[in-house]
Every structure is written in structure tokens, then in C-alpha cells.
Design a binder for these strands. Structure first.
Ligand SMILES: NC(=O)c1ccc[n+]([C@@H]2O[C@H](COP(=O)([O-])OP(=O)(O)OC[C@H]3O[C@@H](n4cnc5c(N)ncnc54)[C@H](O)[C@@H]3O)[C@@H](O)[C@H]2O)c1
Ligand SMILES: NC(=O)c1ccc[n+]([C@@H]2O[C@H](COP(=O)([O-])OP(=O)(O)OC[C@H]3O[C@@H](n4cnc5c(N)ncnc54)[C@H](O)[C@@H]3O)[C@@H](O)[C@H]2O)c1
Lengths: 218, 218
DNA sequence: TCCTAATCGATAAATATTTATCGATATAAA
DNA sequence: TTTATATCGATAAATATTTATCGATTAGGA
């Protein structure tokens, strides 16, 4: 129901594609020029068929006996994942996590950049982190519109996240990377991707307990 | 073919359970005492049947007309996810991300704590972050054994991650939360959960492009 | 030149996950 | 007290995802 678009790429595959890309760039740096699904699968703990099926969705074509040309494969992945166009983001909430993201240099490898950061605290407003200015949050709407920034990162406490998200959306933001542990209520048009670190840690905890206390029932 | 244990709880469900828990604790704080699958589903953008099926796996029982007793439901989730026992972790790599995790107070809400941190850099060794000492990494093995710590967090650069993981495992660590963007090769017994932030951001990027450049084919 | 083995691409089968349906039951209102 | 209805729990159907299989092809060696 609704007009939610059919995704071209199944979500489980989409989650693996960037990981292939990371692995493949490392192989390329090592001088590898051709690579097979079998070797990728082995390195990543998957099975070859799955890798082959995933990579097929990028349009890359391999060849019998030798596999894929690594350079072509990387280009196919870059096109598929959108690394071939520059993406600019605005970050809101320059606390410890926001600062970590601002410091991180490697997003540039994927043509992604944080153009500026915003906060309400005088402690951080006016500072610069890795060359990115920290501006008062009230300037977010005008600057966002002026620069046509479409991607936002939310690093504020849970209590403030919905309000920040609302302002983001009304300022033209169309995709949000949300680190606050709440489910944002936003128009369907807006893409929200939750990075729920605590929830993620819980998964590790449970997997461990499952393995170590055995099958509780079954 | 391998003795990989059958998970009691399907992974997709396991990923949702902590998010239910977060939502439900917020509702409890608001004074809600009974809650239905329908209302949970609505708040989290899911359908009621799915929520009901997920919650069934926690052993919680609801009642016609009124739904679940929130208190009971939270307890069931706490038991299921392991929040009812204290979990101590060691963190390695006190860079910007490691510091953010060390500063974060809310893991305590889930009975999870970072007992100590380790690094090789003199810049951080000897400091304290939110009361947690930063120790030289060479002390990791002995301390890990002595305190029977089973959970490790890897926040070192990708190049150092495999080596740190190896030392962790040989020191008795059995579950690893890995922030480095590489696939660690470790014995099957060790649970590894990758927190690949860049890969995750890529998913947002692609979802956005899919929605905004339309169906490329199909 | 011919043969062998590795690999892809396509199709089919098996599994896993989500979603629909429906009877039973407890609450609250008539 | 009776009735209407919201909700659960169970079962079944539909969908999505993973895994298996197999023929075609090509590189590299016999
Ligand atoms: N730090 C972690 O390791 C961690 C782990 C899990 C989840 N999270 C989540 O990530 C988010 C950020 O965490 P953190 O530890 O960096 O928090 P923090 O408290 O260190 O920083 C929050 C920042 O947001 C700013 N802020 C508050 N309200 C604002 C508003 N309305 N507009 C603009 N800025 C505002 C504050 O001034 C502060 O600088 C939180 O939602 C937290 O729950 C963080
Ligand atoms: N910061 C981010 O936003 C971000 C985003 C995506 C991924 N990551 C990943 O998270 C990890 C940490 O990122 P960061 O930004 O905090 O890095 P960082 O460079 O700020 O910190 C790394 C820390 O690890 C320490 N270290 C290096 N080698 C070590 C060793 N062998 N043993 C012990 N300690 C060692 C360093 O001294 C340093 O303190 C990296 O793998 C990075 O790719 C970080």
C-alpha cells in the first residue's frame, strides 16, 4: 500500500555492497588487478554465489576463469553507490560523537563531506573542527537553503532530535543520518537512516549470551 | 557442515528488540502502564503483527483488549536481551571515536559498562575519561585475564585492528564490537559485530539516490 | 592444437521473513 | 447481565533472500 518505491537493490545486498567496496579498494592498493567471487567471499565470510549475485546488481561483468577486473568492479560499485558524485552534509550536535564524525577524514574517500556543523551551545559555536566551522543552529535553515544541502546528520540528545529533524526537513534536508536513539516521525519523502549504537551493542550482547548459555528452549 | 548454532531469535527480530525496548522505556517514563502491538507498531513505523510476533519471542504474554503490561514487557525484554546481568567491556583505541564511547553515559541504562580503555599513544595513556582509566595496551592481556572481561571494543585504525583483535582473543575476549572498516579473521567461537559507520552512511546515500533519480531500470 | 579446471551467469530449489486471516477472550459500555 | 469490540495468539499465505546446480566460456598448460 502507499507509493513506497520498489528498491532496485534488495536491502541485504545494499548493506553488503559498501563492505565489498572497502575490501576491494584495499586489494587494489595491494596491487591486485583481477579478483573472483570465491576469493571475495572467503575474505568476507560469505559464499561465492551470494557475492556473484550481489555484484551482478552493480552491472559489473566478470569473465570465466579470471573473475572481475578489479578496476571495473570498483567503478561499477562507485556508480551504484553514488560515490561518483560529491555529497555534502550538515551535522547538528557537536558533542563527543559529533566531534568524532567531524574529525574523521575518510568519508572523503567516498566523496562525502561534512560542510559545516551546528549547535546551540556557546562552548562550541565559533570553533572549527578539521576546518569545518561550528555555527549557531539558528543559522541552519538559511544556510541549508542557500547551499542546497540535502543530507543531515543528527548528533543531539534524544530529547532534541525530533525538533532538530523537523527544522532540517523544513529547511530542505531530504535524507537524515540519525544517531539519536529514537524513531523520528517525518514525511515519507524523507529518507531516515538510524545509527542506533546502543541497539547495535545489544545485538552483540545477545549473540554472545545465545552462544554461551545454549539454546534456552528450541 | 560447521556447528554454527541455530539462533533462537531470527536476526531481523533481534535487531528490532532493543529498539522496542528504547521506545517502551520512554513510554514507561511517561506513565504508560499498558500498551498494544498496534500502538507500538504505529510509533515505530511497523505493522502490528510483526511487533506481536517479535514480542512473542521474549516470552511476554499480552491480554485481549488491553495488550501487554508495560512493566512485564520491559522485564521480558531485559531478560531476553541480557540487560539483567552486568556486562563489562574493555575498549582499545582512544581516538575521537573511542573517546565518544567512553564519554557516553547511557550504556549504563542497559547494565553495560566500559571498565577501562587502552591505547599505545603517550598522549592519552594515563588520562581518565569519565572515570575510566586509559592504560597502556601492553597491559591488556594480563588485566583482561585477571578481571575475566569477555567483551572488547575496537576503535583503532583499520591497519591495527586485526592485530588488536588477535591479542584480544588470546587474552580471553569472546565478543568484539568492531568499529574498524575491515572484516576481522578470528576463530568461529568469537562473536564479532561490525559497526561500519561509513558503510552505513553509504546505505543512506544510495537510498536517497534511488528515490531521487528514479528506477534506473525495472 | 586440444584438454582441463576455474569461473561466471542463469535458473531453480530451499529457507527465512513478513504479512494476512481468524477464532478466542477479556474489558468496558449498554 | 448482555453485547460490542479491541486485542492477542496461532496458523496459513505471500514475499524475499539465500543457496544449489549446471551449462557455457575462457585462460593456461599438456
Ligand atoms: N557518544 C556516544 O558514544 C553515543 C552512543 C550511543 C548513542 N549516542 C547518541 O548520539 C547522540 C549524541 O551523543 P553525544 O554523546 O555526542 O551527546 P553530547 O551530549 O555529547 O552532545 C550533544 C550536543 O548536541 C547539542 N545540542 C543539544 N540540543 C541541541 C539543539 N536543539 N540543537 C542543536 N544542538 C543541540 C549540545 O549542545 C551538545 O553539543 C545522542 O542522541 C546519543 O544518545 C551517542
Ligand atoms: N571517527 C569516526 O567518525 C569514524 C567513522 C567511521 C569509522 N571510524 C573507524 O573507527 C576507528 C577509530 O576511528 P578514530 O577516528 O577514533 O581514529 P583515531 O585515529 O582518532 O584514533 C585511533 C586511536 O587508536 C590508537 N591506536 C593505534 N594503533 C593502536 C594499537 N595497535 N593498539 C592500541 N591503540 C592503537 C591511536 O593511538 C589512536 O588513539 C577507525 O578504524 C576508523 O576507521 C571512525
Amino acid at each position: 500500500m502507499g507509493d513506497k518505491r520498489i528498491p532496485q537493490i534488495p536491502l541485504p545486498t545494499l548493506k553488503r555492497l559498501p563492505v565489498y567496496y572497502q575490501y576491494l579498494t584495499r586489494q587494489a592498493r595491494k596491487g591486485v588487478t583481477d579478483i573472483s567471487c570465491a576469493s571475495i567471499a572467503k575474505a568476507m565470510g560469505l559464499v561465492a554465489v551470494q557475492v556473484r549475485k550481489d555484484l551482478q546488481l552493480t552491472g559489473a561483468v566478470g569473465r570465466p576463469k579470471t573473475g572481475y577486473r578489479l578496476k571495473e568492479l570498483l567503478e561499477a560499485l562507485e556508480r551504484t553507490l553514488g560515490y561518483d558524485n560529491k555529497t555534502e552534509m550538515f551535522l547538528v550536535g557537536v558533542g563527543s560523537l559529533g566531534k568524532a564524525l567531524l574529525h574523521y577524514r575518510r568519508f572523503g574517500d567516498y566523496n562525502i563531506g561534512i560542510a559545516a556543523a551546528f549547535d546551540v551551545s556557546e562552548d562550541v559555536i565559533g570553533t572549527e573542527i578539521d576546518g569545518k566551522p561550528v555555527l549557531p543552529f539558528r543559522k541552519f535553515p538559511s544556510l541549508c537553503r542557500r547551499l542546497h544541502v540535502k543530507f543531515g546528520i543528527i548528533c543531539v540528545p534524544a530529547e532534541a532530535a525530533q525538533e532538530v529533524a523537523n527544522i532540517m526537513v523544513s529547511s530542505g534536508i531530504e535524507a537524515i543520518w540519525n544517531f539519536a536513539p529514537i524513531t523520528l516521525e517525518l514525511p515519507d519523502m524523507v529518507i531516515v537512516h538510524n545509527e542506533n549504537l546502543t541497539a547495535s551493542l545489544s545485538i552483540l550482547l545477545k549473540k554472545y549470551k545465545t552462544q554461551h548459555t545454549g539454546s534456552e528452549r528450541e
